[in-house]
Amino acid sequence: MPPSIDDFFPNAVLFQDTPFELNRIMLIRLLVIVVLVTWLVLSTRKLKIVPGRLQAATEFLLFFVRDDIAIATLGEKNGRRYLPLIMTMFFLPLGMNITSTVPFVGIAGTSVIGLPLVMSVVAWGAFIYAGFRDRGWAYLKSALFLPGVPWPLYFLLTPLEILSTFIVRPVTLTMRLLMNMVAGHLLLALVYSASSFFLFALLPQGNLAGLLGLGTVAFGVVYTGFEIFTALLQAYVFAFLTAIYIQLAVAEEH
């Protein structure tokens, strides 16, 4: 069957018609959580001066998020203060995104709006909390009333600032992550559906058009690599934008 929007609304697998109903995507999300926790525990439980491959790979990602996203964006003090949040905003999307390329899984945990929306609301709450924590009500004043602007313009600019800061940010965070994962799944599913049709429906009948399946398989392999890159990139963008929004909230002027 060709891919369709129904892929993102699978039937219940467990506990149907209860508040705890689980479908395929929810099971994927739970699996990712278990894998992430297990990986981080095992790779950091017995740290060695000369790390093995697992510890080295984990340290590379941890140091990258700490140094190149959190501290580079927020500075030493705030970078370490909000490091657990930034780490979560990197590793959780990374794990959820990468499942789109895993055989027999084939769909990202972030390809349904619930999880991207929850993470975006957490990021939204975090930068508002950071602004009030560091600056009190001065944060709200600077966020809504730009300094140096003639006061009549506030009737125009303040609603725009409310829209862009407190509404557009979480919406764009959600949609950027969601749409990339939806598009990636549909394209991969379409390519491999076409490959199956060419190689297993046409070619056995002697139809030479089935040889086109070799091209679609090759494209699928290449695009799978691109999808892995997209999973990494979207995790980086989500964590980086979360850090940027917090930095804007704690800055004296923005």
Score class of each variant (00 low, 15 high):
Glu76Asp: 15
Glu76Val: 14
Lys77Thr: 15
Lys77Val: 15
Lys77Pro: 09
Arg80Gln: 15
Arg80Cys: 13
Tyr82Thr: 00
Pro84Ile: 08
Leu85Cys: 01
Leu85Ile: 15
Ile86Asn: 00
Met87Phe: 15
Thr88Tyr: 09
Met89Asn: 14
Met89Trp: 03
Phe90Ala: 00
Phe91Pro: 01
Leu94Gly: 01
Met96His: 10
Asn97Tyr: 01
Ile98Val: 14
Thr99Val: 07
Thr101Ser: 11
Thr101Glu: 04
Val102Ala: 06
Val102Thr: 11
Phe104Gly: 06
Val105Asp: 11
Val105Ile: 15
Gly106Cys: 03
Ile107Gln: 04
Ala108His: 03
Ala108Thr: 12
Gly109Arg: 01
Gly109Cys: 02
Ser111Lys: 02
Ser111Ile: 04
Val112Tyr: 12
Val112Ser: 14
Val112Asn: 10
Ile113Tyr: 14
Ile113Lys: 06
Gly114His: 14
Leu115Tyr: 00
Leu115Gly: 00
Val121Ala: 14
Val122Lys: 00
Ala123Met: 04
Trp124Tyr: 14
Gly125Cys: 13
Ala126Met: 04
Phe127Trp: 09
Ile128Cys: 04
Ile128Asp: 05
Ala130Gln: 01
Asp134Ala: 14
Gly136Ala: 12
Gly136Thr: 13
Tyr139Cys: 03
Tyr139Glu: 04
Tyr139Trp: 15
Tyr139Ala: 06
Leu140Asn: 05
Lys141Cys: 05
Ser142Ala: 14
Ala143Tyr: 03
Ala143Leu: 00
Ala143His: 04
Phe145Ser: 00
Phe145Val: 07
Leu146Met: 11
Gly148Val: 01
Val149Met: 12
Pro150Met: 04
Pro150Asn: 03
Pro150Arg: 04
Pro152Arg: 05
Pro152Met: 10
Leu153His: 12
Tyr154Met: 10
Phe155Lys: 09
Leu156Asp: 12
Leu156Ser: 13
Thr158Gly: 08
Pro159Thr: 05
Pro159Lys: 08
Pro159Ala: 09
Leu160Thr: 09
Glu161Val: 12
Ile162Ala: 15
Ile162Gln: 13
Ile162Val: 14
Leu163Arg: 11
Leu163Pro: 02
Ser164Trp: 10
Ser164Gly: 12
Ser164Lys: 12
Ser164His: 13
Thr165Gln: 10
Phe166Tyr: 13
Phe166Arg: 02
Ile167Lys: 05
Ile167Thr: 09
Ile167Asp: 11
Ile167Leu: 15
Val168Lys: 11
Arg169Pro: 04
Pro170Tyr: 08
Val171His: 08
Thr172Tyr: 11
Thr172Trp: 08
Thr172Ala: 09
Leu173Asn: 06
Thr174Glu: 08
Met175Tyr: 11
Arg176Val: 08
Arg176Met: 10
Leu177Asn: 06
Leu177Ser: 10
Leu178His: 03
Leu178Trp: 12
Met179His: 07
Met179Gln: 06
Asn180Lys: 02
Asn180Ile: 05
Asn180Asp: 08
Asn180His: 10
Asn180Phe: 03
Ala183Ser: 10
His185Cys: 00
His185Val: 01
His185Trp: 05
Leu186Lys: 02
Leu186Ile: 07
Leu187Glu: 02
Leu188Cys: 02
Ala189Met: 09
Ala189Tyr: 08
Leu190Val: 07
Leu190Tyr: 10
Val191Gly: 02
Val191Thr: 10
Tyr192Lys: 05
Tyr192Met: 08
Ser193Trp: 13
Ser193Ala: 13
Ser195Leu: 07
Phe200Asn: 13
